[in-house]
Structures are given as structure tokens and as C-alpha cells.
């Protein structure tokens, strides 16, 4: 009985959907999707970011990059965690806004690359900093 009523309801929906097809406007899907979710910071990755992501999985959290980070000494320590914080903690794009002060401080050190030179697994830390920086600005508010 439940099965029948469920199938019936779906059948009705299908018919309505087909009937409305000629009036459906193309190219609205993406716009609606981004409008629905963009405001909450749920944004697509760019093709470059999609290609970058697997390399970030190489981080094993060893912390050696922080040992050589030249920036670590001179900045308020709660606002900057060093490359190690990015590698181990920057894992959820909607949270990247909380790294905003972090990446504001390393707009210079994103290119010194000494952290990359000691990383045992070859994490592209500069690309990671740029990735986080882009999404920390795109966040809500």
C-alpha cells in the first residue's frame, strides 16, 4: 500500500515535470546553484585547485616546515601558525576564512620556499598558501 502510494505520487510528479518541460529555461541551473550555496561559502573549486588538491594529501603533519619558516619568529603567534598549520589544518574551504590573518602575514613568504625545501613528502606549500588565501577572501561576510 505504501509502495503504491509512493509510486503514484512519483508518477504524478513525472507527468507534471514532462508537461512543464517546454517552458523550462536552459542555463539557469548553475546560476541557481551558486545563488543557493555561494552565500554560505560553499563554492566550487577551480580546475587548477582540483588538480592541486591530491598533492596536499602528502602532508603527514611532521612540522619540519615550521622549523625553517622565517616568518614564524616575528609575528603574533595566534595569528600565524606557519606552513605546518596550513598543511595539517587547512582542510575545509569554508573554514579558510579563519586562516585569513595567517595568509595576510605571509604574502611575502609565500615565495621564499624554504619550507618546501625541507618537506619530506614534497607538499606544494606555496600553492597551498595561495589556495587558502583565495578562499579566505571568498568566504561569507
Amino acid at each position: 500500500m505504501r509502495l503504491l502510494s509512493s509510486l503514484f505520487a512519483l508518477g504524478v510528479q513525472f507527468v507534471l515535470h514532462v508537461v512543464r518541460l517546454p517552458w523550462r529555461k536552459a542555463g539557469q541551473g548553475e546560476r541557481h546553484f551558486l545563488a543557493s550555496y555561494g552565500a554560505e561559502g560553499l563554492l566550487p573549486l577551480s580546475p587548477d585547485e582540483r588538480r592541486l588538491l591530491p598533492a596536499l594529501d602528502r602532508c603527514i603533519g611532521c612540522g619540519l616546515c615550521n622549523v625553517v619558516c622565517a616568518k614564524l619568529a616575528g609575528v603574533p603567534r595566534h595569528a600565524f601558525g606557519g606552513p605546518s598549520a596550513l598543511g595539517a589544518q587547512a582542510r575545509s574551504m569554508p573554514d579558510f576564512g579563519s586562516f585569513a590573518s595567517h595568509v595576510a602575514h605571509d604574502s611575502d613568504c609565500a615565495d621564499c620556499a624554504i619550507c618546501e625545501s625541507v618537506c619530506p613528502t614534497g607538499v606544494p606549500l606555496r600553492d597551498l598558501a595561495r589556495f587558502v588565501s583565495r578562499h579566505s577572501r571568498r568566504g561569507p561576510g
Binding site: 611532521c62 619540519l64 625545501s117 625541507v118 618537506c119 619530506p120 613528502t121 614534497g122
Partner: peptide, 9 residues
């Protein structure tokens, strides 16, 4: 050399 390893740890 390319990076540090077990010795540094």
C-alpha cells in the same frame, strides 16, 4: 637532497 627525513625527526 630533497627535503629532510627521518634523521631530522
Amino acid at each position: 637532497s630533497r627535503g629532510w627525513g627521518a634523521t631530522a625527526l
